[in-house]
Simulated assay, not measured.
Amino acid sequence: MAETYRIRSIQTWAQARDDYLSGLSAETVCRRHDLGLSAFRRRARKYGWRRSDQIEPPPGETDLSIYEDVGLDDQVETAALRFVQALEHGKATEARRWRRLWLELRDASDAMDAEMFPGMSRHEIAAMIAADDALYDDPEEADALRIEPPLSLKVHHCALEKIPDPLSPPEGA
């Protein structure tokens, strides 16, 4: 079945142009803004959105202070999410690269944890951090923010509890 014809606003095209010229790939821009790749390439050719035509900033030191609050745990999580995203889109090579980065970052994180908490496993460290975080949680705030599961899910769980486990011995035995 053919895709339907989509008309996008001027603002969407302007944002897509800016994203493309800032360095994102055409495929990524099209996914982000729900644009057709051929329509994007046609418009880019028509209006001269070539990166080679753009004025390059003067050479100098790049301001990396915007990344100061990004910790190693955030980097590990981002790499893991990008790995899964690449898998879902069927991009095996990209998925492989993200997986390699994710595992390297996770190993670096584990090495840091091993230095800070000698003799403890990853799971013990995570449990200790979770317990520490629980000390600072406000139970009233947690109750106010908790979302009740829908009734259908509650009924489903009740029904599952009544199904006997096929691996357990019968009650009369």
Rank of each mutant, 00 (worst) to 15 (best):
Q85M: 07
G36M: 05
A26D: 09
L24F: 12
S168L: 12
S121V: 06
D113I: 02
R41A: 01
L87T: 04
P149H: 01
L35W: 06
L101Y: 06
I163Q: 06
I163M: 07
L160M: 13
E171S: 14
E94D: 10
D69H: 10
E3C: 10
T12F: 02
E68G: 01
A134C: 05
P164S: 09
E56C: 06
D138I: 01
T78V: 06
Q54V: 07
I7E: 10
A134S: 14
A126K: 15
T93Q: 06
P166R: 02
S25W: 02
R82K: 14
F83I: 03
P58W: 07
L105R: 15
E77Y: 07
E94K: 01
K91H: 07
R99W: 10
D138F: 00
F83N: 03
M1C: 10
I163V: 15
A111S: 10
V84I: 14
K154C: 08
R17A: 06
E27W: 05
D73M: 12
S9A: 09
E27S: 13
D74H: 13
D63Y: 01
W98P: 02
L135A: 10
R99K: 11
D19F: 08
M128C: 05
P59Q: 11
I129W: 09
M1L: 10
E94N: 00
D53W: 03
L103G: 01
P150V: 09
A95F: 02
G90P: 00
G23N: 08
S25A: 14
L24I: 05
